[in-house]
């Protein structure tokens, strides 16, 4: 297994694209968070959805993860689908004939890279939020504490967001293994992530809640909530658990396909 890990690691690190995508993921995440934080203006006082009462500064400052996950997902999809392009997969499987070991090695490496990408990205988001949100009407002057990981729920949100990116990478790897084509796989992953939240927004009543409970993105991102936890469709850790189940499920399907089909 350690040889396989090392081989897959070498494969990943020797493609310039890997590093570019990682840097891109961090940049996109932090830029999106900073942009949203800078353009937010919460009117003080008042009631209703658009004013301060319902705001969650931690979740708002981590919003870049919504966007950055797309880059992480593509990084993971490419890790497997690229091999099918030029027939590389045959070389890989000649070197590591045990397909479970091969996929496991890929999974460990790609999840590791996603975590390594996620840590600075999430840190950057929180720093941007700490600096920019007071200007937007979500600072100490308006009854909101400055963002700090000394605050338990914020620490959970930050740590959970990094884990979230790791799980998204595993989910994407599984889908890439099933479909083999980079275009089809990337389309399916991005559709699976982004379409259910949109659908939920357009529905009402119990259906909306059910979709938010089972869709990978909406469930997984429950980990970012720090306020009004009781009114969430799903609790933070349970939500991340739903995403983990998705990732494990897709990896298992991927493994089954990998074993059943000719390379």
């Amino acid at each position: 297994m350690s040889d396989a890990l090392r081989a897959e690691w070498t494969k990943l690190r020797t493609i310039a694209g890997t590093w570019w995508l990682m840097v891109g993921a961090v940049a996109v995440t932090v830029a999106a968070s900073a942009g949203i934080a800078a353009s937010t203006h919460v009117s003080p006082g008042g009631s209703g959805g658009a004013s301060g009462a319902g705001q969650d500064p931690t979740k708002l400052s981590l919003i870049g993860v919504d966007l950055g996950q797309a880059v992480v997902a593509v990084l993971a999809v490419l890790a497997v689908t690229e091999e099918y392009g030029a027939g590389m997969i045959r070389v890989t499987l000649a070197a590591i004939p045990r397909r479970g070991v091969m996929l496991g090695a890929k999974a460990v490496n790609i999840a590791g890279l996603a975590l390594v990408t996620g840590a600075p990205a999430v840190a950057g988001c929180l720093i941007a939020g700490r600096l920019l949100l007071p200007e937007a009407g979500l600072g100490p002057a308006h009854g909101y504490a400055l963002l700090s990981i000394a605050h338990g729920p914020t620490l959970r949100a930050a740590f959970g967001s990094v884990l979230y990116l790791g799980l998204i990478a595993l989910l994407s790897l599984g889908i890439g293994t099933v479909f083999r084509d980079p275009a089809v796989s990337a389309g399916i992953v991005l559709g699976l992530l982004y379409l259910p939240p949109l659908l939920a927004q357009l529905l009402s009543g119990p259906w909306r809640r059910h979709i938010q409970q089972i869709a990978p993105m909406t469930a997984g991102l429950a980990i970012q909530a720090t306020r009004n936890i009781r009114s969430l469709p799903i609790s933070p850790w349970a939500g991340l658990g739903v995403l983990a189940a998705w990732a494990a499920g897709m990896l298992l399907v991927g493994l089954a396909v990998l074993k059943a089909r000719d390379a």
Binding site: D56, Y194, L198, Q201
Partner: peptide
Amino acid sequence: LPTFTGPGIIGPTSSGGA
């Protein structure tokens, strides 16, 4: 993705202006 910002889908953004 930009279309998702329609009515507050991307999250708790209060800035309809964005």
